[in-house]
Amino acid sequence: MSSRASAPTPPPSSPDTGALPMVQPAPSGSSPQGLALGLSAYVIWGLVLPLYVTALAPAGAVEIVVVRIGFSLLFCLVLLAVLRRLGELREALRTPSRWGATALASGLIAVNWLLYALSVVSGNVLQASLGYFMNPLVNVLLGVLLLGERLRRAQWAAVTLAAVAVLGMTVALGAVPWLSLGLAFSFGLYGLVKKRLPTPGHPVTGMTAETLVLTPVFVVGTVLLHGAGQLTTLTEGAGHFWLMAASGVLTAGPLILFSAAARHLSLTTLGLMQYVAPLGQFLVAVLVLGEHMAPARWAGFALIWASLALFTLDQARQARLRRRARRALTGSQAHA
């Protein structure tokens, strides 16, 4: 690989999901149906989920994650039965290597869920937004650090701008944005595990397997929370219970919408759409929840947005070059 070889385009990320979609998008173009499905998924992740988690008060972040595991597993098992894919679940966990890969993915996504819940219940949705804006850049950085991939100059510039943004906000605000960094790196590592290790490819099967592996966390967590008098799911009335139960649908629903959208959209379109979710979180934080945007925070977000613009333009340019190369190769073969 040459010194300017690029890391492969990271797959579009799906914030706060239980599985990274492994889909076969259309090679080019997009359709109104695909756009509607994809936007629906990202609007749920960006606008609905932060408001939903806020509505779960007085439940704490740990309870939200513990209960989410239980209801997500129940919903996914029913969904797999309807789809007649329960056999895939057995196959997904058939060998120790698959168990290990799924357990690692489960641990990373559980950390991601917990950090997201902590961001919302502590009034730091802006940190969640920043973390998911950083995610594509973190994916590229992980490729360099863990896979030995090399970046083009534009990609290095984008990653450097993001690092300057984080450093600047840390100095100006007097605190490292740990929630943002934790969300970005936990989801980036989760995506890496899903891409490189033998985990289930179908999103619902993968999510079911991961929540199944997390069942001990659900059982132990429920017992401990109940013993400490902190299990609000059963003590705050029927309305609160059903809100908590909806976590299963809100975990699987957007993922299914995204997977359906990916069949009709190009990778370029999906890559651009992934910014809808953190943008939605940003708008909810500032306009609905009233989080304060200090000048240093505005500057940090502006640098992150600039780095993403540079990164996205570079990716689009490389995609055009690859399409031209394929057309040229096809033309030369046709005349051979």
Rank of each mutant, 00 (worst) to 15 (best):
L272Y: 12
V144T: 08
V176T: 11
L310R: 10
V66T: 11
A19P: 05
A184N: 07
A172W: 10
L183P: 05
A26R: 15
P10E: 00
A252E: 04
F187E: 05
W45T: 01
V219P: 06
L39T: 13
P216L: 10
T312F: 02
A154G: 13
G143S: 13
S14F: 14
G46L: 05
L49T: 06
L161Q: 10
N112S: 14
G237M: 02
L212V: 02
L212T: 04
L146A: 03
A246C: 03
D16R: 15
S247D: 08
T330Y: 08
W113M: 06
R297T: 11
A19T: 03
L243S: 12
R4G: 15
F258P: 08
P27D: 01
S6T: 07
F311C: 09
S40V: 02
S186T: 13
L283P: 04
G143A: 11
L167G: 09
A172L: 03
P25I: 00
L80K: 13
E236A: 05
F185M: 04
S40H: 11
V249Y: 12
G46S: 07
G174Q: 06
A228V: 02
Q333A: 15
A261K: 14
S3Q: 15
A245F: 15
C76P: 01
R263V: 00
L267V: 12
S28V: 01
I256V: 14
A157Y: 05
W45C: 02
L39P: 04
P58W: 04
E91V: 12
L197P: 10
L287C: 07
Q24Y: 11
E210N: 07
G34I: 03
L329R: 15
L83F: 08
A19Y: 10
L167S: 13
T269Y: 12
A92G: 11
L104V: 14
